[in-house]
Design a protein around this nucleic acid. Structure first.
Lengths: 195, 195
DNA sequence: GGCGATATCTTGACGGTGACAAGATATGGA
DNA sequence: TCCATATCTTGTCACCGTCAAGATATCGCC
């Protein structure tokens, strides 16, 4: 592919792919409109015709990140036993994804993508939320599923963000602490319900 | 004060105060070295002699933020009853601080401050951690205090970050969900210990 | 008290960034 | 076939962080 023509053909998705390569290779600070344009082999102003501003490109990259995210969590749940084990496996996989793709994870939960009001981003993020909510319902019922799901999401998101920010005390035992926390949440859910 | 002299007198702290004003007034994206210099009434390159780069100024601002943070959490605990009530009150106050000072909270837990390797930042953040750890020990003993403290920190940090990122499903009931989560954690701690 | 070393601040410059405007080129429908 | 339109390029602007060099005030030493 990529015989050089004036019109690229599918520059929009090419820019998203370029952005993801830059995130993995050079990190968050290197993600600029001009860098994506260079990576895609077009001029510095070409992205303007596909994204109104940087926030819109970031939102598109974040949306594509959520697709992989949902796939990874689904795969982790498929390999686990009962519903509660699936939920815990998803918690582990959640943090694993964040640690494996730190820059991508940051923009997925950054404020830029949200403020861009991109519809694709909203629906991609909604799928991740539905996935979590469904797993919580399967494991612990519908009694206060929304609150329970928000709690678990807060827990794993906070755990991941603290580690990405190098703010985790006792980083070497962090994985163990995560499992401890997930078990404690499960115990808390059960303790609340008499039988 | 501030009769105009060539030498400022205490530009370093003036720049930190200027940075905090900018964060409150214009948000995170407005926090630049040049903006702080303008706000402090000095030339654009004056900060160079007090901070090697932007990350060092950010770290100094974040350290000053942690001072207020610890004070606010102390005050919230002082108004609560037993040790467990104090811990829950601190959780509420934690999220309250983040929502009241979103931009400041972001840089306190951002990666820039950490990467600057500022000693003042490290110690200020360490005080916040010690405060939390002490409260966890007071409320739930020393059995697995580190893991418990990490869990609570992850929970409230994640909850706060999701709300700051406008990613909280059911934002209107978020405060109620936070109390729900803090109670569930408490129940989980107790359920784990037979008596 | 005077004076030189030093700390502090200013001015100016450089490359990089997002965004905008105007011109060049290719695509597709009438 | 031909023109409207979408797409890409080139050029420009203000702002940013950072560095270098010069101006000015402070402080220690004689």
């Amino acid at each position: 592919m990529t015989e050089k023509t004036y019109h690229h053909g599918d520059l929009r998705t090419a820019l998203v792919h370029a952005g993801r390569r830059i995130l993995e290779r050079d990190g968050l600070v290197a993600l600029t409109l001009r860098a994506c344009a260079r990576e895609a082999g077009v001029s510095h102003a070409a992205p303007q015709h596909h994204f109104r501003n940087l926030a819109e490109l970031v939102a598109a990259i974040a949306a594509s990140g959520f697709d992989n995210f949902v796939t990874a969590l689904d795969a982790s749940a498929a390999g686990a036993g009962d519903a509660d084990a699936k939920l815990q496996a998803m918690g582990i996989a959640y943090v694993g994804f964040a640690l494996a793709h730190p820059a991508l994870y940051r923009i997925m939960f950054g404020i830029e993508a949200m403020q861009s009001e991109s519809e694709a981003f909203r629906t991609a993020r909604g799928r991740a939320w539905d996935q979590l909510l469904g797993s919580v319902v399967a494991a612990h019922g519908t009694l206060s599923a929304d609150s329970d799901a928000v709690m678990i999401w807060s827990l794993v998101h906070g755990h991941a963000m603290l580690r990405l920010a190098l703010c985790m005390p006792g980083e070497s035992q962090a994985d163990q602490m995560l499992r401890h926390a997930l078990r404690t949440v499960s115990a808390g859910f059960d303790a609340r319900k008499p039988e």
